[in-house]
Amino acid sequence: MTVMIAAAGCLLAHVPVYLWFPAVFGCYAVLRPHAVRQVDWIVIGMLTVGVLVPSVIGPLSWNPRIDDPFVWSVLLSQVVSNVPATVLVTPMTYDWRDLLHGVTVGGYGTPVASVANLIALRAVGSHGVLRDYAVLQCSCLVLGTLSHYALS
């Protein structure tokens, strides 16, 4: 079974998602409708938009250079998550160190900054962790930013 899943994954990696996703989704909708209802579609939508926007912008030959990839990747991560921020900022810089630090530190802050945070917060619900979460995230964001500039 593992070999079949790996082979299917390798095959699907070379086929555009808009061709195979409807078929896979349709099979799940018919064979496992409860699984489709349990999917967190908000998180899936955010990731999809966050990855599609940079892939749409890329072919437009809009390739400006940014002066401070650290600042831009931290700020963008707060809005679209750190993975799409990486995809968006990568063609705009050659400063891989600042980009790496920026998307790492950018994973702290808002719940959207890292989709893992968003998933965990949605799973917890309203169990009184939001204040602790905010304090920890903001502290890590500030400490990460200070650490970056201390290492520069």
Rank of each mutant, 00 (worst) to 15 (best):
T2K: 14
T2Y: 10
V3Y: 12
M4T: 08
A6Y: 04
A6E: 00
A7P: 01
A8Y: 03
G9M: 04
C10N: 02
L11C: 07
A13E: 00
H14Y: 12
P16E: 01
V17R: 00
Y18R: 01
Y18F: 07
L19P: 06
W20G: 01
F21C: 02
A23R: 00
F25V: 15
G26A: 14
C27T: 10
Y28D: 08
A29T: 10
L31A: 13
P33W: 06
P33R: 02
P33S: 10
H34K: 15
V36G: 04
R37F: 14
R37C: 14
Q38P: 04
Q38L: 15
D40N: 15
W41E: 11
W41K: 13
W41Y: 14
V43Y: 05
I44P: 08
G45K: 00
L47T: 11
T48D: 12
T48Y: 13
V49P: 11
G50C: 07
G50R: 01
V53E: 06
P54N: 03
S55A: 13
S55V: 04
I57W: 10
G58D: 15
P59Y: 03
P59T: 05
S61W: 02
W62G: 03
W62M: 07
R65E: 08
D67G: 13
D68I: 05
P69D: 06
F70A: 11
V71W: 08
V74F: 12
V74L: 12
L75T: 10
L75K: 04
S77L: 07
S77K: 04
Q78R: 09
V79K: 01
S81T: 15
N82F: 02
N82R: 00
V83M: 12
V83I: 14
P84F: 01
P84L: 02
P84S: 03
A85F: 04
A85N: 05
L88I: 09
V89P: 02
V89E: 02
V89S: 07
T90W: 05
P91H: 10
M92G: 09
M92E: 12
T93V: 06
Y94I: 12
W96T: 15
R97L: 03
D98E: 13
D98Q: 12
L99K: 00
L99D: 04
V103F: 00
T104F: 01
T104R: 00
T104M: 02
V105D: 00
V105N: 02
G106A: 00
G106W: 01
G107E: 08
G109C: 05
T110A: 00
V112I: 13
A113D: 09
A113I: 05
S114R: 01
V115P: 02
V115S: 05
A116C: 03
N117T: 06
L118R: 13
L118I: 05
I119P: 04
A120E: 10
A123Y: 04
V124I: 12
S126E: 08
H127V: 06
G128P: 05
G128D: 07
L130N: 08
L130S: 09
L130M: 11
L130Q: 08
Y133K: 09
Q137R: 09
Q137M: 12
S139E: 07
S139M: 09
C140A: 12
C140W: 07
L141S: 08
V142N: 07
L143I: 14
G144H: 02
L146D: 10
L146I: 13
L146S: 11
H148S: 08
H148G: 10
Y149Q: 07
A150G: 11
A150D: 06
L151F: 11
